[in-house]
Write a protein that binds this DNA or RNA. Structure first.
Lengths: 337, 337
DNA sequence: ATGAAAGCGCTAACAC
DNA sequence: GTGTTAGCGCTTTCAT
């Protein structure tokens, strides 16, 4: 038994018409039109044969012919990171809804991997790219622009690069969460952040600073920056903070908070008695232990949907280019306890 | 400026040779061979031009010509689920190493979505499929076999279907974790499981039962099965368990454990004083609160690597088919406290 | 309303 | 050692 997949040609032969007509009918069906410029009976016959034979169009052929793959690429630092995994899921759903498939890739914040992924994805002929850029990725990202590949940046943007992007209002988020800490009566608040200079992180820090200054509290030197490859250093920072009499700890990301909580718990300190804690994004770990941790909730689903929609708007453009769009999503403050 | 990508033809023109030769040289380069049947100088010239022009092969054309896309599909119930997200990451890494890209899809345990994904992926011409099958997916999976698409089942297998699969030794895992509970002195142990009849769940239950019986303890009726669309019912089950004087709780999956812990915490019960708890897979939430929870650790990275390798072994087969292989991975018991 | 034919970029068999 | 050519499955233009 030969297992060559059934092609348009087979259908034409079986239905006694030309392949051109089959192609035409199949395309009409796909686009959900019910009015054919084709003879009704012929159309019905072709459709019937196609179904009977289990016809599936060959995407490679179509891609080659049309220069379009209906595939988008998504590049993040680590797809197994909860934030990105959640977004990935939403991107997947939205893309499928709009008849696209998604190729995912993780860079581990490594520029070589990023460049390689961009190449591979370009070879595969992706129609567009959604990227959560990491540090030092400016050059690579610029290359994507040069390549004329439609692109939208996710979660972070790049200084000096005008592109489409979908972002959280991190400045507002940083301010809101700081305010929450102040509202519980904390004065001596310190922020534990990343040494990586990502726009989202920077904005959160700025939000914190602005808010502290407005409250007439010192913010200078109150931000401690952890290297992402030296997460262990967080331990000493927190121990020192305790000695300095810090009352509130604001973690710039959820992973930072998780590591911080581990330290707090290991030292036998209690939340919120010993430390008031706030961060970005919720976590099962908070709820399960009734930890009173305030956090900024990001609209994950919207991140995914907006990114896909914005990208496809650019992809499906018949001609020319749109001017870059920035979509800024609103943070939501969640208070626990 | 016309932005048509540079093709083999452009290189041929520029280097003053035929496209066939260019193709030949490029392929040799790709496969890392350094001995050409081609004139050294010609080869060098071609390579030089290719680099200068920034040539990237067109995958669609190659796929069409060769009937091979170097893409595999991965279908799970939900890619944002931690277990699958972790595996996805490992699959991605391994596949990239081996020069394949990966298409991911989530079914939400829904047969229609599964069928649809299989179709879409088939259209895209994936060379093989890795699937974590959910309940009632027998028919769909069988169709993949019929389609002659190489496939490996992940995490769960299907009764009455001989296929390649990569699985945990869930029977052993179930027994090991039960023993751990017994070893801490628990007698009255109950298992909280899924109503879904997935092979991995069933095996874990069997391991539990066997172990309990061996210890001369009742196991009949000691398994409570939660419907995945009625997670809230877990609350009453645990409250009842407390009244029945249950000492140890074994959760069949991590999500079940998470929900259970929420209930336990909400009722003010302590671990391990009020309940000894054990489950499958670790979780940040455990460590952060120094919860003494024993669990079975699955070798995630191995899951990914083995699945990809097994799949590609079948994909890259020049001729015929291999007989189905089952790869059984060993569970590892992690004791906390 | 329908069909013939060109061509997307590539590989591989074959000829020179 | 190098070039010519057919053809993968599809869409699309142009005839009829």
């Amino acid at each position: 038994m030969n297992t060559r997949r059934v092609s348009i040609k087979d259908i034409a032969a079986e239905a006694g018409s030309s392949i051109a007509l089959v192609s035409f009918v199949m395309n009409n069906r796909a686009s959900g039109q019910n009015k054919y410029r084709v003879n009704k009976d012929t159309a019905r016959r072709i459709l019937e044969v196609a179904d009977r034979l289990g016809y599936q169009p060959n995407n490679a052929a179509r891609a080659l012919r049309c220069g379009k793959t209906n595939t988008i690429g998504v590049i993040v630092s680590d797809i197994s990171n909860k934030f990105f995994a959640d977004i990935a899921r939403c991107i997947e759903d939205r893309a499928h809804q709009r008849n696209y498939t998604v190729l995912f890739g993780s860079t581990d914040e490594n520029t070589d991997k990023l460049d390689n992924l961009i190449n591979v994805f370009q070879n595969k002929g992706i129609d567009g790219l959604i990227i959560a850029p990491s540090e030092n990725s400016e050059e690579s990202i610029k290359r994507v622009s040069t390549l004329q590949i439609p692109m939208v940046l996710l979660d972070r943007e790049l200084p000096g690069l005008e592109t489409n992007s979908v972002l959280l209002d991190n400045l507002k988020g940083g301010a809101q969460i700081t305010e929450a800490l102040l509202a519980r009566g904390c004065r001596h608040i310190e922020m534990i952040s990343y040494s990586m200079r990502l726009s989202n992180i920077i904005d959160r820090e700025t939000g914190f600073k602005l808010c502290m200054e407005k409250a007439g509290l010192a913010s200078e030197g109150m931000i401690y920056r952890i290297r992402h490859d030296r997460f262990d250093t967080i331990s000493q920072v927190i121990i020192d903070a305790k000695e300095r009499g810090v009352e509130g700890l604001l973690f710039a990301t959820n992973s930072l908070a998780l590591s911080g909580l581990r330290v707090i718990s290991r030292n036998g300190w209690k939340i919120p008695e010993d430390f008031a804690v706030a961060t970005f994004d919720g976590n099962d770990a908070f709820e399960i232990n009734n930890l009173e941790i305030a956090y900024i909730q990001q609209p994950i689903a919207q991140f995914g949907t907006e990114a896909v929609d914005l990208l496809l708007k650019n992809v499906e453009l018949k001609t020319g280019t749109l001017s870059p769009t920035r979509i800024i999503l609103s943070p939501k403050l969640i208070l626990n306890g």
